[in-house]
């Protein structure tokens, strides 16, 4: 079953210089293996084509059923230097949740939104 990441996870993003971070958290523990498999660093790099100019690194936090992504050169120079509206990458969390992913059919009943 193909769903938006928004249906299985929530997220928060922030900045450190020109690097954005996105914390992605499974809405239910059952969804953690799904995001672990589907939301790879390569996939996120492709997703943010044109926004993220550098590499994407992924860290796993199974204790929080979460993944942390670092998107380098993603903020147009960084908070104080950027000319963008979203100079601190505050909306990149929502942008990640637009991603379409595959979820096993047996988890369909757990989808809420």
């Amino acid at each position: 079953m193909r769903v938006r990441l928004l249906q299985v996870a929530h997220a928060r993003s922030g900045d450190k210089g020109d690097t954005a971070n996105i914390g992605l958290i499974a809405l239910k523990p059952e969804f953690y293996p799904v995001i672990l498999k589907e939301v790879t660093a390569e996939r996120v790099k492709r997703h943010f084509k044109g926004i993220c100019q550098g590499d994407v690194e992924r860290f796993e936090l199974p204790n929080l059923v979460a993944l942390n992504f670092l998107l380098r050169r993603a903020l147009g120079g960084g908070g104080t230097l950027s000319l963008r509206t979203d100079a601190q990458g505050k909306t990149l969390s929502a942008a990640l949740l637009r991603m379409m992913i595959d979820v096993p059919d047996e988890l369909a009943d757990l989808l809420e939104r």
């Binding site: 922030g14 450190k16 971070n21 914390g23 958290i25």
Partner: peptide
């Protein structure tokens, strides 16, 4: 959890 991951680097 959201705040824990905010501005996180290598956890």
């Amino acid at each position: 959890s959201e705040q824990l991951l905010y501005e996180m680097g290598d956890p």
